[in-house]
Design a protein around this nucleic acid. Sequence first.
DNA 1: ACTCAGGTATCCT
DNA 2: AGGATACCTGAG
Length: 264
Amino acid sequence: MIKEIRNFDLKMIADSGQCFRMKMTDKDHAVVIAKDRVLEIRTVKPGVFEFDCSETEFNDIWNSYFDLDTDYDAFIAAVPKEDGFLKKAAEYGSGIRILRQDPFETLISFIISQRKSIPAISTSIGKLCRMCGNEIREGFYSFPEPKALSQLSDIDLAQCSLGYRAEYVREAAKSVYRGDTDPDMLQTLSDEDLFEALTSLKGVGKKVANCVMLFGFHRIGAFPVDVWMQKVIDEHYDGHFPVERYEGYAGVMQQYLFYCIRNE
DNA sequence: ACTCAGGTATCCT
DNA sequence: AGGATACCTGAG
């Protein structure tokens, strides 16, 4: 499958921090694991990509996963010229898209993310998948189902280097497995109610809830503020970022800012 | 060996 | 309400 795609850069997306299961295998090859699928992508030349899947699979799965029907130029163009910093950041990160990742995987991944470095997060998630995901291809494992994850022993969880997050992960998995937390139901909630539902889970605070909303439920108005974002906001926005100016898509701006400062 | 990491719960005032 | 503190462990 050869596709011409605007605003799509493999390395930018892999490094954007929204996803822990997409890796660059070399300069222009990426491997993504999502659901029960593994996908390899190659940059043929700027703006042109080869996907190692059928056209049907591309249309059914990956087109939506990479949010390819959304016009990101419009987001970039929406930045007012008064905000030179964001303007520059949006140009710099113009290859980023907000992936439509699985809600359960995103929830667990960002619970794990607290007080961990990105490499450490990837390691933990990789161990979890190997431990109780399905081997979908030689050496590649799917993200665990809620049932499998909720049934891991303390020893199993400790082996995944979860530390004090182990209880959070187990309880969240249990809650989903029991049906108390139902991703399909959550999807129907308003942003406010979704935020409430997520933060009612132990180990899910404001930042994690916003990441899960943005990356797992595609609520692109969600605006996660972590230590990096706080630094930009303090240094460039006098302590307050005008989220209200970007009502409904502030999360896209967050990604541009985040990517920019992480790579400057 | 030593610090710090994409935070959160809990315990204060 | 808002501020301080402990927390598991791997990566650099």
